[in-house]
């Protein structure tokens, strides 16, 4: 089980790099959808654990992260009729290199944190920290509002990876609450994105600069 789990986590890490290299917004959303769906299934693979609450959680997570949110975003993209390029502040190659550096840092940092016996040898912690960092990179170096949301989703995915370490300890209510908040959050943000588009005729957040000192 552990080796399968690690294999999935490596795929997730590689997808992070793909997300950084993506040049089309549509492709970016698809990558993150697949990543979310993959991550949603992880609780089934965490050692000594398959129970009804976990299955429920998996279904909810895969549906929301893999299907519902990407659909909302695709819709927002279509309504806004923006150009399809991602438009990064720094080039795609430097972003990928930055992402690789983030993964390296995450592995080194995770090494400093002691792991419980049952989690020895699982890549969950470094994968989680690395994904959070990649989310940050996407969030800060992309200028379109919708790509910033994708960055935020990647960040949430990273936190979700860490959450699977705790699935037995944390009651289901909280986990579902987290998912619901994520869902509503993206929903509200997408509405605002449409309003930005209407008011500014663009989703480029570099235009949002009238408020400053």
């Amino acid at each position: 089980m552990t080796s399968l789990l690690n294999a999935i986590l490596v795929i997730v890490l590689v997808m992070n790099l793909f997300a950084l290299a993506a040049s089309r917004i549509r492709a970016l959303i698809r990558i993150v959808a697949v990543q979310g769906a993959l991550l949603g299934a992880i609780p089934l693979l965490v050692p000594q654990h398959v129970a009804l609450p976990a299955v429920l959680m998996v279904v909810a997570a895969v549906a929301i992260k893999g299907v519902v949110i990407p659909l909302i975003m695709m819709r927002a993209l279509r309504d806004a009729q923006i150009k399809r390029e991602v438009g990064p502040l720094i080039g795609r190659l430097p972003s990928v290199i930055l992402g690789a550096a983030a993964i390296l840092f995450a592995v080194l940092f995770a090494d400093q944190l002691p792991l419980a016996d049952q989690h020895e040898g699982v890549l969950l912690v470094p994968a989680s920290i690395a994904t959070v960092l990649v989310g940050f990179i996407l969030l800060t170096t992309r200028v379109k509002a919708i790509t910033q949301i994708v960055g935020y989703l990647v960040l949430e995915n990273g936190i979700y990876i860490f959450g699977t370490l705790l699935i037995e300890a944390l009651p289901l209510v909280v986990e579902l609450g987290v998912l619901l908040d994520l869902f509503v959050g993206i929903f509200v943000i997408c509405i605002i994105v449409n309003h930005i588009n209407q008011a500014f005729s663009s989703l480029d957040t570099r235009q949002l600069v009238s408020l400053k000192e």
Partner: peptide, 9 residues
């Protein structure tokens, strides 16, 4: 809108 966007993000 700008303020809301920054606040949310």
């Amino acid at each position: 809108i700008e303020a809301t966007w920054k606040y949310l993000l």
